[in-house]
Design a protein around this nucleic acid. Sequence first.
RNA 1: GCGCUCGUAGCUCAGCUGGAUAGAGCACUCGCCUUCUAAGCGAGCGGUCUCAGGUUCGAAUCCUGACGGGCGUACCA
Length: 451
Amino acid sequence: MVVDYSSPNMAKQMHVGHLRSSIIGDTLANLFAFLGDEVIRQNHIGDWGTQFGMLIAYLEEMGEDGRGSLSDLEQFYKDAKGRFDADKAFADKSREYVVKLQGGDVHCLHLWENFIDKSLGHCEEVYSKLGVNLTREDVRAESSYNDELAGIVTALDDKGLLTLSDGAQCVFLEGDEHPFIVQKSDGGYLYATTDLAAIRHRVHTLGADRISYVVDARQAGHFRQLFAVARQAGFAKPDTRLEHVSFGMMLDKSGRPFKTRDGGTVKLIDLLEEAVIHAKEAITSREDYSDEELERIAEIVGIGAVKYADLSIHRDSNYIFDWDKMLSFEGNTSLYLQYAYARIQSILRRHEGEVSGAITLTTDPERALALKLLQLEDMLHRAAAESLPHYITTYLYELATLFMKFYETSPILKDDVDETTRQSRLQLSILTAETIRQGLGLLGIGVLDRL
RNA sequence: GCGCUCGUAGCUCAGCUGGAUAGAGCACUCGCCUUCUAAGCGAGCGGUCUCAGGUUCGAAUCCUGACGGGCGUACCA
C-alpha cells in the first residue's frame, strides 16, 4: 500500500500547517508496516509551478553557491517576491525562466535542481528532528510526472470522458456542480492531472492496492472527484482502496486559522526549537544532568510533547494551537507515558537476578492492567482500519494510568513481597514498558531510561 | 445558494460504530513523600451531550429540520 504524506512545497519553508500531514502520515505508515503491510511512503513534493521561475532567477542573482541566502526560505521567497514586484526587468526574466525551465533549458534546469536540493535539505532537517521516516527515496516530485500528463489527457479522451468547456478539457461527474479540469484553456496542466498520473503510477507500477492521502480536509472535494475519475479511467482498479485521510486545521485561540502575531506562518523548525527549550527548562529545575544528557533528554521530551499533542486529537477536528497545552507535561501527554516507562526502568535497574515465572493476577489493579495489555492488538487493528492515530495515544494513556495505579498499590521490590508475586509484577511491568515503548515508537516518539 | 464538517463540564478534548449511573486533563477545594521516581496517586466540585422532532426495548451516537462555528465551491496547489 501507498501512504502519501507531508508533501511540502519546495518554494516555501515548512510551517506548522505541515506538521499534521507529516506526523499523522508517518504514524500510519509505521502502523501499517508494523501490522505486516508492505508500505511504500510517497512524498509528493511541490517542485513545479510558475513561482519557480522567479525563485531561480533570484537564486542566480544571489549566486547559486550562496548557501546563506537559502538558509531561510521564507525570507528568500519574500525577497524574490519583492524584486519581482519592484523590478520590471526581473519580473520579465522570471517569466522567461519559467518558459525556459519547462522547455528543458539546461541552465535553468541546473538552477532549479540546485534550489530543490537545498529546499529539500531543509525539509530533511525537520524530518530528522521530528523523527519522521521520510528519505530522498520516498520523494516522488510533482515534476517527475510531467512527461506523462499529455498521455493522461489522451487516455481520458480515449475513454470518452473528456468534454471541452470554455476551452478547458474537463471531466463532468454526475451530480457535481463543477467539472474536474485536467487541462487549462491555455494548454497547461493542473495538479489534478498530476494526481491522476500519480495514481496510475502507484497502482500499475508500484502495485498499490490501497492508497492513503494524508491531506487536510479542505481538499475533500478534490479527492472525491480525483478518485471517481481515476476509477472511470481505469487508472485505479475497481478494488483499489483510495482514501483521503483528512485532518482539520490548526486554529488560534479565537478560532481563526493559526498565524503569528504579524500574520505570518509559524515555522515548524521554530516550534520544535521552542519545544526543546521549554523542555530543557522544565528538566533543569528537577535534576542535575550533564549538558550532554540534558540536550538529549530535552530533545526527546520536547519534540515528543509537540507530536503527542497533535496526534492525540481526533484528526478530523480542527484544533486550537496552544503553546501551553502543546508543551504541557501534565495529564494525557507524552511525558506521562515517558515517566511511566522511566519508573519501570528504575525498578528493573534495582532488581537483581532474572525475571521468570507465570503472571498471576490476584488484585484489581493487576487485573485491570493485564486486561488493558491484552487489548493492544485489537486497538492497533482498529487504528489501522480507520486510520486514526489517536486511538494509539488514548490506549497508551489508559495503559499508563492503570500502571500508575498498579504502581501505587502494588509493591514489587519491597522485602515483604513474596517471590511469586514479585516475579508476576515484574513481568507485568516489563510488558507495560515494552508496550509503551513500541506504541510511542509507532508515533515516532522516544522513551528514556531515566527521567 | 449548494456541498462537506463540527457543536459533549468554565477551558481543551475522549467516548471502541446503538447499550447500563456520559469519561479524562486543565482550572478550583481537600488529602498522600522515613519504604520501588510526588512530572505521581486518592477524594471532591462541575454536563437537560446546541435546540426541536423522529426511528428503537434502548440515542451523545442513526434520520429530518432549525440555530451556531469552520471549510469548500471550474481553468492555484
